[in-house]
Amino acid sequence: MSTTTMAAPTPARIRNLFAAEWTKLWSLRSTYWVLGVGTLLMIAASITDAIRTTSRWSELMEDLRARFDPMSVVLGAPSAALLMLGASSVGVLVVAGEYSSGLIRTTFTAVPDRRRVVLAKVGVVAGTMLLVGVVIATISFFASQAVLSSVTAGVSIGDPAVLRSLASDALLAPVAALVGMAIAALLRHTAASVITSCVVLVIVPSFFKITVYPWVDDIYNAFPLYVWRNCLSMLDPITRPYFPTVTGSWIVFAAWPLVGIVVTAVIVHRRDV
């Protein structure tokens, strides 16, 4: 009888694990709602912003017009905060949802190699959120610039600064989602993880304003939302000391999700479930 003897262990193929996590994400109705409604909301906010700016354009002071950054309406600061909040919640749900329902035990009974499971989750979440970010940034860009073109010269997508700004808009979502996953791996509790992600990613950096103490500014410069607002999203970032630099900002954008992935993998691998 062939079933009586144990077959040689076959490694779980990462391609199969991706397919499994993809199925899990898209078999929940909430995924369609959160991502669909969220994307439409972001695009609508951008168009509304552009319309408001256009209608007030003639009343604006000369220097305000000169300083106007056409990229600021693609993804406004409140939209960026909301985007990070939503994206981090998706990351939280993908991890904490499994722990709080107990599904995690079924998952690890099917695939005992937990680090591979984490890798597949990270891939699917980061890929999906990057796609969402790119869709939001691209559509918002073209729609808002079309509206703005009636009063001021729009910017071209081919401009390197424009591409950098759009890339930073698109990356906010995957960065926040991976941080959300790490926080959920640490706390394992959905509500606590959503609140913690919100505090760390959005609320705390929203209060930051440049100070006269360089070491405080250095701390501020380590937060993704802060460097996005004060550097990456701007067409022409301020290049004074203590302000975040473009290179430094990209390092922050890379470091947070990387640390998040490592934390998630190590904690999920070590802890009992």
């Binding site: 144990m6 490694p11 929940l28 107990g102 599904l103 035990r105 079924t106 005992p112 190699d113």
Partner: peptide, 19 residues
């Protein structure tokens, strides 16, 4: 140390371990 757990061991621990 096994890769594909389901092919080696089938388990029902708690019927509530689902989403």
């Amino acid at each position: 140390d096994l890769g594909t757990g389901l092919r080696h061991v089938g388990a029902l621990l708690d019927a509530g371990d689902v989403h």
